[in-house]
Design a binder for these strands. Structure first.
Lengths: 207, 207
DNA sequence: AGAAATAGATTGAATAGCCATTCATATTTT
DNA sequence: AAAATATGAATGGCTATTCAATCTATTTCT
């Protein structure tokens, strides 16, 4: 924070709009995906981004702040798309399908990102993971909305426990994706969407 | 065990039976659960175990070796119990229920262990995670056995994808447990077993 | 316009803190 | 008294972060 900050609000936002902010985040994803979390020194990220080590600290408070920002920036994508899906005039079951498919599609399209979110970012410290959880929460709240809608219109079992159903849906999507990354993307993740949806829908559909 | 035997070769095993070996492992679980992975210096573990820093290195090759041993010692109990369950003359659905219940029961009974396995150990490096995966694999193979048995006797849907069903079951159990740990154990995890089983069984049961 | 001053951005070598591991020495057991 | 165990201060490697110096863009002055 510089000495002129008395006169500004939204300094963070300003920084986020400068090209170097994204440049560093994109570099971090590549470096972490290729070298692993523990071999991703700040100097390596700086080199990949084409800036000096010190420049990193003009845009991020510290190393952890880079990682939180990676998650913030990319998770927004999932939540935004999910919001659109929820608005569509389709059944709750179809919304659930589209949610699974979107999740798989986004990560299939960016394997670096998939590796970072499923494997590397998870070896960060607890504080960072709690922060990541806060970001995830937005996503999960939207999932709850789909589940509640489905109950309201009789598609889903009215007696199901929404919290557990949410954990099942998210746990299944997450485990499926992680397994795909660990198997080095050697099969088509998006193609699994119908079967995954079928399992999840069976679990919660009304009798 | 007797160090004078000319015929004994298992040096590792000998160390594992000395009291200090377990003492150090138990200390590691406590220290990691209470301080977090990154704040668990060897010196802290030594202090908790009541030994000198250097003593650690008489029983473990290095710090990572302590963590691998924690996992080896404590996680094999899941697979062992699951093997017993599979032998029992009960339905596949009941086996699935007992698997969920056993998982929740073991971790509920030792919150330090739950914290370490669900949160802290996941921030380890690649070598350790590969090792953890090898242990987990045994567990998942046994889960596959339950699923195959259930298909064979007509309880489970014969068209289900076993690999996906396995990922759903494990993903759900894991996510449920992690959420419970992150919520600081403030509800009864074991009590959720019937509902979790119901969701999973719905997903895979024969029509 | 061109020069000069000011503010803003970037650099990267130096620093400073951290901590796993070692090993000479001491203690305990056989 | 020899062997086996245990000790813990010292070492050495590592890297996130800092900051004085430099470069660039913008504004003010003549």
């Amino acid at each position: 924070m510089n000495s002129h900050s008395y006169f500004y609000f939204g300094v963070e936002t300003m920084k986020k709009e400068k090209p170097k902010y994204r440049q560093i985040i994109d570099a971090a994803i590549i470096v972490i995906a290729e070298n692993g979390y523990h071999q991703s020194q700040v100097s390596k990220i700086a080199k990949q981004a084409g800036v000096a080590d010190g420049t990193i600290y003009l845009y991020f408070k510290n190393k952890e702040d880079i990682l939180i920002s990676v998650f913030d920036e990319k998770m927004e994508m999932f939540a935004d798309r999910l919001k659109e899906i929820i608005e569509e005039p389709i059944t709750a079951s179809e919304k659930l399908f589209k949610m699974v498919e979107n999740h798989f599609t986004v990560l299939s399209a960016d394997r670096h990102l998939a590796t970072v979110t499923q494997l590397e970012l998870r070896q960060s410290n607890l504080a960072l993971r709690l922060r990541i959880n806060a970001v995830l929460k937005n996503y999960l709240v939207l999932l709850d909305t789909i589940l509640k809608d489905g109950i309201a219109n009789g598609e889903f079992d009215k007696d199901m426990d929404i919290r557990l159903a949410r954990q099942m849906v998210f746990g299944t999507i997450d485990e499926t994706t992680t397994t795909w990354v660990m198997n080095e993307y050697k099969y088509d993740l998006v193609a699994l969407s119908p079967k995954v949806h079928q399992l999840l829908f069976n679990a919660i559909k009304a009798e």
